[in-house]
Simulated scan of single mutants.
Amino acid sequence: MKILHIGKQGNLERYLPKDSALLNMALVDLPIDQPAETYLKDGADADFIVVDAIAPVPGELIRKMPNLKLIHSEGVAFNQIDLKAAADCGVYVCNAKGMNAAAVAEQAVLLMVGMLRNAIQGDAAVRAGRQIEVKGGYIARGDLLELSDCAVGLIGYGDIAQATARLLRAYGVSKIYYNKRRRLSEAEEQAQGVCYAPVKTLLQKSDIVSLHLPVNAGTVHFADQAFFDAMRPGSYFVNTARGELVDDQALIEALETGKLAMAGLDTLDDEPVGADHPLLNQSEAVEKKIIFSPHIGGITRKSFFRSYRMIDEAVCAVCAGRRPEHVVNGR
């Protein structure tokens, strides 16, 4: 058996369980963004592809690998894999569903608290010798919020959003709104401490809105001008999902006008992000209203160990003639 790995080289040795049978399989370990011919040179006869969540796996590659049985994303995303070509060739495509839920939820809450406490500007103020000035301003205005002061809206309610809701409850947040295509049962809502709301209602009721949607044809620029116009004045926006969900110009306008107090962004459109990205070239007033993190929400060490445990189980299932879990291409 042979594995073609497309991603950060050495990941299989780093993250697979030490007793995994996969470690005894032949391995072709190559970086992302190579032409199909490069992968086919040594990997055309591979039985399995393990691939970085953002790396493309085109039909051209899939159709030229006659032994291929399974393509497994290292992460949750799989939109760069040609699902139809895989299904036509009888190849399972799986993702590591839920592998990074706890990690991304932590990142979402980190950005929420970081905005409410204006952590970046607070750090800069202390370094500039303005600690007491800034502290005194908060005392005089009485406007420093706790997370439990806020109603939080979660748009998309999969594994990550549900993990975020659990953390929010631990912070004492009592008003958590959610939106998803299929509403939970009343018993599930009560158990999870959440309340369903249509998107517009959620935007109007929430002090903090957090995106947890996948990217597809219907969600690109989901957060557009109408979206931000519907939010509460002075509210906060978090995106730990995908940068393509946000219309950057609409976000900039919402920050400029004060419609948004701040935005916390773990991901931007058009990654890898260059110095010329529009969100990085704004006035000082707008720049102070954004907290960036370098798309690290889902790449904790523990997340990768969870992912590779799923990959190990899926490959073993296919080798034993069983259908693996988390199949995303209808095989």
Rank of each mutant, 00 (worst) to 15 (best):
89 C>E: 13
56 P>V: 14
282 Q>G: 09
274 G>I: 02
211 L>D: 14
277 H>C: 03
240 T>D: 03
296 I>S: 15
114 G>F: 02
96 A>F: 01
90 G>C: 04
273 V>C: 12
237 F>I: 03
191 A>S: 09
203 L>R: 06
30 L>P: 06
189 E>A: 05
188 E>W: 00
251 L>A: 09
311 I>F: 03
246 V>P: 06
330 G>I: 09
230 A>N: 13
245 L>I: 01
103 A>S: 15
299 I>K: 10
59 G>C: 03
130 R>S: 13
264 G>W: 02
274 G>T: 12
213 L>G: 09
94 C>D: 05
45 D>I: 02
18 K>M: 10
150 C>A: 12
302 K>N: 14
20 S>G: 05
2 K>L: 05
170 A>G: 15
147 L>I: 10
18 K>D: 13
103 A>R: 07
81 I>P: 05
116 L>T: 11
75 G>R: 06
61 L>N: 10
232 R>F: 00
195 C>T: 15
219 T>E: 11
111 L>H: 13
72 H>K: 10
134 V>F: 07
190 Q>T: 08
65 M>V: 07
8 K>F: 13
82 D>S: 02
40 L>E: 07
317 A>H: 02
292 F>G: 13
67 N>S: 11
10 G>P: 07
83 L>H: 08
39 Y>S: 08
15 Y>G: 07
37 E>N: 02
211 L>R: 10
56 P>W: 05
68 L>A: 02
269 D>W: 00
159 D>V: 08
26 A>N: 05
319 C>H: 13
142 G>V: 01
300 T>A: 15
121 Q>L: 12
1 M>P: 13
13 E>P: 00
146 E>H: 05
246 V>D: 03
2 K>D: 09
223 A>F: 01
135 K>N: 13
122 G>H: 11
16 L>N: 10
197 A>L: 03
228 F>W: 02
273 V>H: 04
130 R>V: 00
128 A>P: 00
118 N>L: 00
192 Q>W: 00
83 L>I: 06
81 I>E: 07
41 K>C: 07
125 A>D: 14
99 M>A: 14
162 Q>R: 15
130 R>C: 02
295 H>F: 04
94 C>Y: 04
102 A>C: 08
235 S>Y: 00
300 T>I: 10
110 L>G: 14
90 G>I: 02
190 Q>H: 01
243 G>L: 06
281 N>S: 01
155 I>C: 12
229 D>N: 14
291 I>Q: 12
135 K>Q: 15
306 R>N: 15
326 H>M: 04
201 T>S: 13
156 G>A: 08
137 G>T: 10
46 A>V: 03
327 V>M: 12
101 A>I: 09
69 K>S: 05
294 P>Q: 08
256 E>Q: 15
276 D>R: 04
256 E>H: 08
40 L>Q: 09
269 D>Y: 10
82 D>N: 10
29 D>P: 00
37 E>K: 11
93 V>S: 13
241 A>N: 05
155 I>E: 14
238 V>Y: 00
230 A>H: 04
67 N>G: 05
208 I>M: 12
9 Q>Y: 06
162 Q>F: 02
195 C>I: 11
3 I>D: 11
263 A>N: 07
59 G>M: 01
184 L>S: 04
18 K>L: 09
32 I>N: 14
39 Y>E: 12
303 S>L: 08
